[in-house]
Design a protein around this nucleic acid. Structure first.
Lengths: 233, 233
DNA sequence: ATCTCGGTATGGTCTGACCATATTTGGTAC
DNA sequence: GTACCAAATATGGTCAGACCATACCGAGAT
């Protein structure tokens, strides 16, 4: 894509041309979520490439979370523009963790950055408090590590979503997806979730009080406890 | 991918199965950057699917920045594991900006978060100062907006890279890619880059002095100037 | 030792076929 | 007229097989 218009020597593969054309069309026609792309056969004819190349391009768009394919017939069938950046980010992070180009520490560090930033804002806006309270109660009565972590994600996500920034929200969700396995294992290993819940209540209290500094500090303590240094693969 | 192992009713497409198997193999064999995947024909036979399905899976991996395909023959040919998260993130952000599910403000906000975070750390470590100085000098003598922005990216990237977190670095690079067009346009419109350079020097001074608070404030001022509210599409 | 040229493995592309799914359409029974 | 059921159809999903361009590999000639 970045090569499409530049003067690089590299030959542009057919599916890359298709990608560029689709992106152009999205911009030119102002397509947005819910709009449909032409069918694969039709696109192939329009762009003078094979259906295979069109399919590869659509597969890329799907993997980046901007298109969703539906089989069958009717208004909802075909390639529809969607917006699932978190799914795409999640897969991306998971794969890069898998080939060891990203370390656990970097991922947790990024989480710390986003959550502290969001908590500062949440402390000023006072939003998300009731969602946090519900998640706290649900964690108290959670049956096992999986269920605990599920509500834990809701708790932390609420803080980030209060900032109203879909990019950081998506990023957080992706980070949580990528480390969900470790989180469940850590909770199961610890057995007692009392410390974690105490952290959560401290965070909630700080945001409710509008004390941004205390919220930042509480989150640092919490993440250090949940992912102690040395927590790897 | 997320559906691969769950009990969802949705049928798993062939290429999704291929993706899952490749991911398993990466984890099981501990494959990392530089290692090669089997050829498309060989993979197709091993996994009992058509070559088209294998190709779609590899296309996805390529779009997520974990694989790079080389034609020809020899040790470097075929699908090689790589690590280009920034490229993948860049395309992802650009597309989502295109379909209007992310706003300019959210992107700039995220940049502000990362750069402030990084600057705090840089102020403590004192790294990246010489790279920043070289970029400052290069911006002074830049011929046009494009060249100015090029060195501007180097300047800001140096701050983030000083944190040593490849995830935030990749994210920053992706954000810069996504907004490069706007940045060039803004510089061209302003004409005079004196204010921007003054901001840059304030940021550099604060980091050199180890004054984290001043660095955070200087970055806030700079980004507010470079992307004033109302800067949209 | 070096050069040359054919062999070969690789990804890239195309064609054409068939399948599965889901809607649309039209006919039929009531 | 209404309700229901079956055929037509448009869509993505998959496959098989072919051919091309590329780039290394290696045998032979010099």
């Amino acid at each position: 894509m970045a090569d499409a218009g530049s003067g690089r020597a590299g030959r542009v593969r057919a599916f890359e041309g298709v990608l560029a054309r689709i992106e152009e069309r999205i911009a030119a026609d102002g397509l947005t979520v819910g709009d449909r792309l032409p069918g694969e056969r039709q696109l192939a004819e329009q762009l003078q490439v094979s259906r295979s190349s069109v399919r590869e391009a659509i597969r890329v768009l799907e993997s980046l979370g901007v298109v969703s394919s539906q089989v069958g017939r009717g208004p909802d069938a075909g390639a529809v523009l969607t917006s699932r950046p978190a799914d795409a980010l999640g897969g991306l992070l998971r794969l890069h963790l898998g080939i060891a180009t990203l370390s656990m520490r970097e991922v947790v560090d990024a989480r710390l950055m986003i959550e502290q930033w969001s908590a500062q804002r949440a402390a000023r806006s006072g939003m998300a408090l009731d969602t946090m309270e519900r998640a706290l109660a649900a964690m108290d009565t959670a049956a096992g590590p999986e269920e605990f972590v599920e509500h834990d994600v809701v708790f932390h996500s609420a803080i980030v979503e209060a900032s109203g920034n879909r990019l950081t929200s998506a990023f957080t969700q992706a980070l949580r997806d990528a480390v969900r396995h470790f989180a469940v294992a850590a909770v199961a290993r610890a057995g007692d979730t009392g410390d974690l819940q105490a952290d959560h209540r401290r965070i909630h209290r700080a945001i409710a009080d509008g004390d941004a500094d205390a919220a930042v500090a509480a989150i640092a303590v919490h993440l250090a406890r949940a992912y102690p240094p040395g927590t790897e693969s």
